[in-house]
Amino acid sequence: MEPDDTATEPREAERETRDPDEGAAADAPPRPLRWWLCLLIGAAAGAVGLLPWLLDGMRLPLQNLWATDALPDEYPLALLPFSQYFLTRIAALLIVGAAIAGIAARATRSRQRRSGVTWMLVGLLAVQVTAVVQSTMVVRGGLEDRFESDLYLAALVAVAVLADLIGVAVMILVGTAPRAGAVIGLAVAAVLSPSWLGGLLLPDPAVGGSAQEPVLFVLRWLPAVLVGAAIAWGGIGTVGRVIAAVVALAVLWIGPALITAVSNAAGSRVLARRPDEMIEYAVGVFQSASTLPELVVPPLVVAVLVAVGGLVGRLVVRRRRASTSTPEPSAPSDDASQSVPDCGGASAPPPSTAG
């Protein structure tokens, strides 16, 4: 019996019609990103992080220690909202931008050289440090010449520098660490996401209205959903990932309480001249916000439900892919089995015709 060539004909035809140059290009690895492109990606991430404040007009917020009586529209422009009432917003603008840079670094990791993440970090810090320096110079030039003004400005700079350092850690975790570390970095950014997105969608929270209610609902549950999605993406298949999931839930528990405490204490003009009482008040607010079940439990439950749903969905998709990629064994047909010659008969010598 002659062998069946129908199975090999498509492959041979494909070899004959395929362009050798196209095949080499398809099999070649993607071209690595140039250093300047990595630099631009980091700078773009830093600019996106500042986007809510840039779109809001960059007008410096109200300053209690301003040297002159100025209307809100008369304040100078600053790249960061340097004010004791915007501490959370400052941290969100810097840390969310760093998280975006980390996501970009992780997404392009297969096309990076060894120094790719470093150049992205340089581009990110170039934008953020410029924003901190410019805002510092603008505020310094308009404040009263007194000790309280120096202390006030030093506190704002310290908050911005601390946020920058946390942002660097978040970018490294998200961009270069294993999934367990990336989950923790994403959780930190998720806690600050309401302030960032709120600045983009609600630049003036004082203006009320029914149109803001859906946005406020989204902002309330956004950190829990993002943390749950990060846990589902990271998985719980190893001890490190389980620990990372627990840490992410702890960040979701402690982070909002810390933000509430700092915002309430720093935003009080009564406590501005009494730092010891301000710290005591912040500790009290933190204890209340981190222990009240009606504040703590609902976000954790939502995060766990989102994580479980995502993990189950991943498992279902993985099993479907495995079942479709595994070919089913096919039984030989009767015609094929009948056409196969007997090995014994094939090996016997032909009968002799000699007389």
Rank of each mutant, 00 (worst) to 15 (best):
P3Y: 05
A7T: 03
A13D: 04
R15H: 00
T17L: 05
P20E: 05
E22V: 08
A25W: 03
D27Q: 08
P29H: 09
W36Y: 13
A43Q: 02
L54C: 04
L54E: 07
M58K: 08
P61I: 11
A70R: 13
S83G: 10
A91G: 11
G97R: 02
A99W: 06
I100F: 09
A105L: 06
T108G: 00
M120T: 01
M120E: 06
S135L: 10
G141Y: 08
F147R: 12
S149D: 10
V159R: 01
V170H: 03
I172K: 04
V174D: 05
V174R: 07
P178I: 14
A180R: 14
G185V: 13
L186N: 09
V188L: 15
V191C: 10
L192Q: 04
D204I: 12
P205A: 04
V207H: 03
G209M: 09
A211S: 11
Q212Y: 05
E213C: 00
V215L: 15
G234S: 13
G237V: 13
R241S: 15
A245I: 14
L258I: 07
N264Y: 05
N264C: 00
G267R: 09
V270T: 11
E280F: 05
Y281L: 08
A289K: 05
L292G: 06
E294D: 14
V297R: 07
P298V: 10
V302K: 06
G309H: 09
L315Q: 11
L315D: 10
R319V: 03
S323R: 15
T324I: 06
P327G: 03
P329H: 05
A331E: 11
S333T: 15
P341M: 10
D342S: 15
P351Y: 10
P351V: 11
P351S: 09
A354M: 11
